[in-house]
Amino acid sequence: MRSEAVPEHEAAASYGTPTDEVGAFLSRRREQIAQRWADEPLFRTVFTVSRDEAVEACRSVVDALAQVADSGRVEDSDSAGFTVVREQLARMTAARSRSGMSTAQVSGEVDALRAPVVNLLVADLPDAPPEHLRECATTLTVLMGTLRLVVMETALTEVQALIDRQQMQLLEVATPVIRLWDGVVAVPLIGTLDSARSQVVMETLLQAVVDQQARYAILDITGVPTVDSLVAQHLMKTVAAVRLMGAECVVSGIRPAIAQTIVHLGLDLGTVVTRAGLADALAYALHGLGADIVHATPGGAGQR
């Protein structure tokens, strides 16, 4: 363990407020704290390239804590001092979770940083009155607790970002567009429609209309269990947008229960073309395209 000589006069005499004292201590003992923390699992296992790398990371955290203490807001996890280390903390927690640690375990590792620094503080103020020492130790403990909170916040943010990403991917795979005929595209919807999914459905269908130059777009909701007023509104918006683009939208597969809900909610689907099933919707579209389906007559030429 390296140690550095500290001029005697700095550690004695006049005492500031506990936050000032803690801030001054963190700046003064920056190097020693960093050296001790670098051996703690949280830093040692994340910064594996060299010890210097770990020490450097520790220094940034100590600097951040010193800045927060100087600002006098040791209990505030939004304190500006934390801003610069947030990204580093996020990387560290991400690395720990990748190696299989639970959030609680990471929290424990952050907590393990507290004892070395508090011990150092006590050792650093040997002549201070016990009352003052206790206040400083409490302040430092609160500050370390805030650091732990910041780490937890960043960890949760990372988890949330992951969920967001996965949700987005799920939305994309759950919305296939099928080309049913030349100029007819369909989206069969399965599962619950929420606002975000309805948005993706609308965008996907509209893009398909352009790509395929489709004059008919069919939204089949056979696999949708319920339709509330918000979903109905989205359906109507989709129909309106398809019309603006110069195509026609047909909604098929409105099951009796959903039809009743729509009537019950007092929703007016008046302007929307609806058909019982996907086949009926396709027949409607083909008719519109001038291609009717007829039964093949025995001996006659097969017709589409």
Binding site: E87, A90, R91, A161, D164, R165, M168
Partner: peptide, 10 residues
């Protein structure tokens, strides 16, 4: 709306 891209290591 799209989740932010993976943070770059600095």
């Amino acid at each position: 709306a799209r989740p932010p891209r993976q943070r770059e290591e600095s």
